[in-house]
Amino acid sequence: MVDPIAMPNVAGSDSPVVTVAPGWAFAAVTVLGALVVVAAVLDGALSARSSGGPGGAPGGAARPFGEAARLMRQRRRTTVQADSLLWRIGGAGLLVTAALMVAVVPLGRWTIFDLDVGVMWFNAMDVMVWALVWLTGWGANSAHSLVGGYRFLAHGLGYELPLMFALVAPAIAAESLNVGRVAAAQDGLWFVVWMPVAFLVYLLGVAAFSVGGPFAPALGSDVAGGVRAELSGVDRLVFETGRYALLAAGAAFAVPMFLGGGAGPLLPDWAWVLVKTVTVLSLLVWLRRRLPAFRPDTFMEVGWLVLLPAVLVQDLLVAVVAVWRS
């Protein structure tokens, strides 16, 4: 071989963030796990409140722990001629995908994977969710869970393009696809202030790729639980954890893209990233309980006739501003 192959990477020496040793990936996964617990506890507390205070729903804020303990002791349900390989890949993949998403999110100055096309990387990971949710629905060899898988793909065709073009806006303004540079480009004025449409569509996309809130019909009780109809025991626990992890990863990615990264007074930048992430995460958990479901068969038109033009106009405005500034 004439040229030795170099390791892929890197945004160059003038990158605004520092790449830490790979061992810190464990710390990043721990932070992601803590965010999952925060989201699950908040979700439990909110559902206890909405069902009429203490005593209404079992557990409240402690529900996720009780539910985890129950699922870990539950015997695994088997179905006839299940495609177990694809089923397990789908169920466990959500958690892995969320971990790969946070790999490109800088915690203040530190990042694990300073990829020069980090925004595209995040986008590629959220497309992986399409495959994984459908595989979970397929693997059980059950009609209801397969219907759930197709419901998710029907939603996906509607939400994915608006989400992609929502991610384009900060990248145009920062003139970079590197997440650290996008965060650094918001010196003084956060992108959320002058690209609110892109931010809202992005949040909708996060709710969508975590299969929650308005995009929960894929797991609907009208199809016996949809994708997770036959999931039981630890498999179900890993799937649910993966959904919360995707929600948390989406909230974390919103911080460098729209909310100025680690910028803020008094606290160090890593603390600001965590504060903002928890705030966005709480907002998402609360909001996705309040929104009505989008019907999978009609959402496509909402996505392509309302969301997509709105976010394209947003991109155009951002592009005009970017050209005018340079």
């Binding site: 892929p8 990829l115 020069d116 096309v117 595209m120 990387w121 986008n123 590629a124 497309v127 992986m128 399409w130 495959a131 459908w134 793909l153 996906g156 994915e160 696809l177």
Partner: peptide, 16 residues
Amino acid sequence: NYVGVVTILMMVMEMA
């Protein structure tokens, strides 16, 4: 990097 990540993105979506 861009070509590689776009390949992953497009192909996974296409298979779905």
